[in-house]
Design a protein around this nucleic acid. Structure first.
Lengths: 338, 338
DNA sequence: TCGATTCGCCGAATCGATTCGCCGAACAGT
DNA sequence: ACTGTTCGGCGAATCGATTCGGCGAATCGA
């Protein structure tokens, strides 16, 4: 069942059916109705491949996600969901490619077969081979997160440096003198994962500004690791009274670790972080945190990408978000010396 | 840059280039090498739309996921990740459609535009409009989960009835006489969500077989709801000493609720469940549970779908999984009466 | 009434691949 | 030397849409 069949049954030419469909030329009312009726009766929908071939665009967006081996964090999941939702809103489809490294078959397929009109990339490294690869193809793309040299690409990112800095200042305001940063996993940081590096930079800057003593530790992205991490921290740095973190997956473990060590939050110990609201609110006690607006970021990324597809040669736009810290119950004044 | 350009530069016809690409006819070695060299130099890849149009298939699988509004559970996320991964393994791409109800634009687009060769559906209701819709189109599809009348469709599912039943038997073996089922959310169950209904059926059967007293409650899919749910349960049914659950998202809350009520697991109270291994192991103490093999299920679904695409008219195949219960630390003998 | 517009629709070209039929040349068999 | 086969490659048709130029009829103005 194709456009020719509709044309035949409606007694018109194929072009007329096409014009009824697209509205790009006027069609007399009686003819339009007749054609539309046949379309409705046969429940006809134009073949997407044929249309894409002729129009030179697919109405599909590519989304590159981390491979399954490495579990998606809640925040990443939020990005994916919101990208898909925002795309659907704009009548665009989303094609997924799970690919971490470079030279990935699925990634190459996506960007090289004219299968998508543009690409959204997440989990960006400071030096990212995929970004480089995309730049040499002329395919429009937007990243969630940014590389080290990000002026000439489109991106949406969270200002981890500033946010972690604010957490430290908030803790300093409460009187804490010895604070720790619980970063993301050592592998991620070693691989040049931007948020990890920028959070550390922001942490160090703020610690220096306030004349605090600061410790930073890496921690794998799960509860068990969080618990171990806190245990070790309390042993090696017993003077620490507060933690700032961007590792939301480790949060439940951090809470458990403190509890086991007999520290109650926020009486004996404070925690502030950068996390999806969901995690912050689910923490006990509710976490003082800068809530990352994952859903908005996905929508923004889609919007930026649509612009870029429509007008590819304008200068790239960025969006650096730094949501305010929501004061909840996990931070309090420094406890008296033990 | 198209196949014609390659042909020109290699001094052959377009058909010859095509045969070099597909290997469907023999091409003399010198010619083959010359063509391949031009292809490599120009980094040529055939246009996916044109190929799809001619071949009548897109090499793309559709995956229908719940809309973002309703947060994806960890298990659902596991399905999605494994489907995408398994598809990539087979050089197939995955197109996403976030759609819950029927008459969804994105869903319709996916199944009517010949955009995909087949569809994988998740979060199936006992009566599901999307399944009905897919059956009237001739598009191959596989569901993760099954409808009430599932003989004539392809699916992969977990046998919640049996698994929850096993949990109850395990608890009964330990001496528990008063057990409760913490089900998924009331809305889901009311909407005819299969696992909810089948879990309840399995629970009731097992409770009857062992002559226990059983209570069942619905609980929204998050930690806060789990906590409230347990609080209420301990008040209304103080005699209950064990819970069976398939609501993994509520688990952390259930644990907290018991703790607050002064019940320690497994000394005073037992919990057994059906959950992704990740959640079971992260629970404190580690949860005795039938671990749902989400990753395998996604891979199975892709495999079934590929079969169905290759041979659409064979009788539909099913796969009902009932993974064994892993004994961990959350279940123990019934406590002495309080 | 006649030429100029406007309107509505059609026909054909086009997008970039795949595939079938066919045609020369080389080669084998008697 | 003549016929039958095999081999390598070419040309054209095809998939299902979009879009541009053009054509006949209706409408308009003077």
């Amino acid at each position: 069942m194709n456009i020719g069949e509709i044309a035949r049954q409606a007694g018109v030419s194929r072009s007329t059916v096409s014009y009824v469909l697209s509205g790009r030329r006027t069609v007399s009312e009686p003819t339009r109705r007749r054609v539309q009726q046949v379309i409705d009766e046969l429940d006809y929908r134009p073949n997407a491949s044929a249309r894409a071939l002729k129009e030179g665009r697919t109405r599909v967006l590519g989304l590159v996600i981390p491979p399954a081996a490495q579990r998606l964090t809640d925040m990443q999941l939020g990005f994916v969901a919101s990208v898909v939702e925002a795309a659907a809103e704009a009548d665009l489809d989303v094609l997924l490619s799970p690919s971490g490294g470079d030279h990935d078959r699925s990634f190459e397929r996506m960007i090289t077969g004219r299968r998508v009109d543009g690409v959204i990339l997440m989990e960006i490294r400071l030096e990212d081979a995929r970004v480089a690869r995309l730049q040499q193809t002329r395919l429009p793309f937007v990243t969630i997160g940014r590389t080290a040299h990000a002026d000439d690409t489109c991106w949406v990112d969270v200002d981890y440096a500033t946010l972690i800095g604010r957490c430290v200042h908030h803790l300093a305001d409460l009187g804490h003198r010895h604070v720790a940063l619980v970063n993301r996993s050592a592998e991620l940081v070693a691989a040049g994962y931007g948020p990890g590096h920028r959070a550390l930079a922001g942490f160090n800057t703020a610690v220096a500004e306030r004349g605090l003593s600061g410790t930073d530790v890496c921690c794998a992205d799960d509860a068990a690791a969080g618990e171990q991490c806190v245990q070790r921290l309390l042993v090696t740095r017993p003077e620490v009274t507060a933690i700032a973190t961007l590792n939301e997956a480790a949060l439940p473990g951090i809470g458990r670790g403190l509890e086991r060590a007999g520290r109650t939050v926020p009486k004996d110990f404070s925690i502030a972080g950068v996390a999806a609201r969901h995690w912050a609110e689910d923490f006990r006690p509710p976490l003082t945190s800068a809530d990352v607006p994952a859903t908005q970021m996905g929508a923004h990324a889609v919007e930026l990408l649509r612009e870029r597809i429509a007008t590819p040669d304008t200068s790239p736009r960025h969006l650096l978000l730094s949501p305010p810290i929501s004061l909840r119950a996990s931070t309090g004044p420094v406890p008296p010396a033990r």
